[in-house]
């Protein structure tokens, strides 16, 4: 069972494709005869090797100039779709791809199925599975209506596997006129120094919730333990909403999905909003004062206790462990 042509909206981290792009390529080549990428950026040549290796047979590349990349991506896709008629376009649920798929959906008048965790064919139907209610339930939704179908998939939904393909040829597309939308300009980019791995790619994630008590406790409890274990630090929605840590740290339904080898939840009660973003972790350790907290229903080891008492002793013990 396959469909003809699937495109992946590619994104990069420096001069490499984003992991989420490689995940989408791996899935795309499982279901499609032809897999191609559309990429907004000035370094497509640097990515072409890896994109080809993971299954892309062509990279349509467009330069954004100083405009917001998603806006240019949508405008370029309108023209490319008219010329080449893809059946399905896959986007990762990221900041820039969300801008692109949202604008494209209006221009093409197509629905977008978002937050996909699964993607499969059933005959000639394309079906996207989305986790709801804290990941307890999966809703399968099929596209109806005209192609191309537009689907946005949460990063970490599929494993990225090389197809040992050769470098994909790059076809440069002229930067389209995006009209008033194109008046949104990027003035300056700020790269925040990060110690340790990225949140979505870390083998160990330590997250803090309301139970840590204050913004000031996040550093010595959450960051410190994460650093010690060479992991990344995350957060529940409650403390992002409270302004203790930025949105980029949020794990959960309206944040990031993580699937580390070990997830440590500190002072997190485990609302469904949070569970959907982390219950795919291999092993879960939770420390929380409330023994009835739902986080314990998914934890492999649960400690009913005060994070302010347990965590400092734990940090000391790990340091002493050497």
């Amino acid at each position: 069972m396959s469909i003809e042509k699937v495109w992946v909206y590619a994104e990069s981290e420096g001069d490499k494709p984003a992991t989420s792009t490689l995940e989408l390529l791996t899935k795309a080549r499982e279901i499609a005869t032809t897999v191609e990428c559309v990429y907004v950026g000035d370094n497509a040549d640097a990515l072409a090797g890896a994109l080809g290796e993971y299954g892309a047979s062509k990279v349509h590349a467009v330069s954004p100039g100083d405009a917001l990349p998603g806006v240019i991506g949508a405008a370029a896709l309108v023209e490319l779709v008219a010329a080449e008629s893809p059946d399905l376009i896959l986007f990762a649920q990221t900041y820039d791809a969300r801008d692109a798929v949202a604008r494209l959906s209006v221009r093409l008048d197509r629905t977008v199925l978002t937050n996909g965790g699964e993607l499969r064919l059933d005959g000639d139907r394309v079906i996207v599975g989305t986790a709801i209610f804290g990941g307890n339930t999966i809703v399968d939704t099929a596209f109806t209506g005209e192609k191309p179908y537009l689907a946005m998939i949460r990063p970490k939904s599929f494993a990225a596997e090389s197809a040992s393909g050769s470098a994909a040829p790059v076809a440069t597309v002229a930067t389209p006129d995006a009209g008033r939308a194109g008046e949104a300009k990027v003035l300056e980019r700020h790269v925040e120094e990060r110690e340790g791995p990225k949140l979505e790619e870390a083998a160990i994630v330590v997250s803090g919730g309301r139970g840590i008590g204050s913004a000031e406790a996040y550093g010595p409890l959450v960051d410190e333990l994460a650093k010690l274990l060479q992991g990344a630090s995350g957060a529940s929605r409650a403390i992002v909403d409270a302004g203790w840590v930025p949105y980029s740290k949020q794990v959960g339904q309206t944040g990031k999905t993580v699937k580390p080898k070990l997830y440590i939840a500190l002072g997190i009660s485990g609302a469904t909003q949070h569970l959907v973003g982390m219950k795919g972790s291999d092993v879960i350790l939770a420390i929380n004062k409330d023994g009835e907290a739902p986080i314990f229903s998914v934890a492999d080891l649960g400690i009913v206790g005060d994070v302010h008492k347990v965590v400092p002793k734990l940090i000391e013990a790990i340091q002493a462990h050497g």
């Binding site: 939704t141 596209f143 998914v298 649960g302 009913v304 734990l314």
Partner: peptide, 29 residues
Amino acid sequence: HQEIVEVRAAPAREAGEKIEDDGESHARI
């Protein structure tokens, strides 16, 4: 332009060991 074709249960995750902190739970961790 979309149709819900199925609603199904996701694979469940089992709860593991749960202990009360007695001041020494860090050793168990």
